[in-house]
Computed example of a mutant assay.
Amino acid sequence: MEKTTTTVAAWAAPSATEPVALTTIERRAVGPKDVLIAIDYAGICHSDIHFARGEWGPISYPQVVGHEIVGVVTETGSEVSRYKVGERVGVGCMVNSCRECANCLAGQEQYCLKGNIQTFGGVDPADGTITQGGYSTHVVVTEDFVLRIPENLDYAAVAPLLCAGITVYSPLKHWNAGPGKKIAVVGMGGLGHMAVKIAHALGAEVTVLSQGLSKKEDGLRLGADHYYATGDGTVFTEKANTYDLIINTVSALIDINAYLGLLTFDGTLVSVGAPAEPLPVQAFTLFNNRRSFAGSSIGGILETQEMLDFCAQHGIVPETELISADYVNEAWERVVGSDVRYRFVIDAKTIGVTA
């Protein structure tokens, strides 16, 4: 018997300027290698807002966003071998890739040379439709891009690990954060607070560089050894030539050369925040101390699973605020205003429920 699509409830952006609203979307039929996931929780990332509002370019509407998804497998395709009905699983920022290029074959699907298929706003190779994200009750994903959620992690808080967690874990691991290394984290938001937790668990000496000191107590509680305000500028003199690695998590313009000056010999500044405007770099700033300025995306599927297992081993989950689906528009405004500590998570059981 031919399988059919499934109609599910979702909260979608009708246009770049209208509020997110309750609607229904079609999920593709479960193919041989697919799993159907009943979503329990979906994290809110600032990328959701940028994308839905067309700030990164024109998109197709209506659009359901959300790429921090956790739920339970409710159906598997005939050829699925990794997952069984009833297992807790997650889906992050991508749901497919070419599987053939050098980067994909190296387990770095996030850098697919043909472009990975994003969880929302991509073109689904299975049926040619636009992918729709996690602000919904169900999703269908090929098993190769599904993650296993460790049982000992707080289920209601784990979703943001699938974006915020892996986004900082990947560069911390790649640039060898660990004992004897001095790591600075620029920004104390959704990404920054995860960088602090993970860098601390890796054994590094961790410093937070934030505009002010309003989150200092949080930063020290979450694992930072030091916390400095950059607003008065003295830190750039006092801490020059200090850090082995700086993770820049902010998506706003900063004086990148000032931060590069904080790097020690062979130090690297890695940007994971994505401002729309260029970040001008003075070449001589790099020449001094043989410094490097780099960027990093998320992680591949194997590394994302490694991150989840690492967080389970160390008891790491994001600091979250659980909300109902009908609060999404207010939550977005609070994200834009930096009024969240530190990540919103939607209770997907409330999707499809209206007041």
Rank of each mutant, 00 (worst) to 15 (best):
F293M: 11
H226C: 01
G223Q: 04
K215N: 07
F284A: 07
V141E: 00
L105A: 14
N248M: 09
F287P: 00
D244R: 04
T6V: 14
G273T: 12
V206R: 02
I254L: 12
I198H: 00
N329P: 01
I37W: 03
N96M: 05
W56Y: 13
R290C: 10
F293A: 11
V208L: 01
D127R: 07
K181M: 09
L262F: 09
R290H: 13
S47M: 01
Y327P: 00
L253I: 15
P278N: 11
H174A: 14
K215G: 04
G219E: 01
I298W: 12
L191H: 12
D232E: 11
A16S: 09
I183K: 07
P125D: 02
A276P: 03
V139A: 00
V281Y: 08
F145T: 03
G107E: 10
E205M: 09
E330A: 15
V146G: 04
M188A: 07
G115S: 10
A201V: 04
I166Y: 02
R27T: 13
Q211L: 12
G92P: 01
V30F: 09
K173W: 10
M307W: 03
E26M: 08
E303R: 15
E321S: 11
H50W: 10
S296D: 05
K114E: 05
G165W: 05
A177K: 05
T264M: 01
G66P: 00
T230Q: 08
A126G: 04
D48P: 00
R291A: 11
V235L: 06
L191S: 07
P171T: 11
E79R: 13
Y111V: 04
T17S: 10
A159W: 02
G66L: 05
K33G: 06
E205K: 15
T264P: 00
G133Q: 03
L191D: 08
I69V: 13
V70N: 02
V270A: 05
A195I: 05
G203H: 15
T350Q: 06
T230V: 12
P58W: 02
A159I: 10
R148D: 07
A21K: 15
T249C: 13
E79C: 10
L113P: 05
G231M: 11
A201M: 04
A199N: 05
G57M: 01
G92I: 01
S47A: 06
D34G: 06
Q63V: 12
T350F: 06
G57P: 07
C112A: 04
T4N: 12
G31Q: 15
V64A: 02
N289D: 08
S136Q: 14
W332V: 10
M188H: 09
P275V: 11
I346G: 01
A29R: 15
E333I: 02
L222T: 03
V340M: 05
Y327W: 13
L162M: 04
A195W: 13
H226S: 00
S297Q: 15
P171L: 09
A126K: 15
T320S: 01
R148Y: 08
G77C: 07
S60C: 03
I44K: 04
F236A: 05
K182S: 10
G352C: 07
P171V: 04
V65A: 11
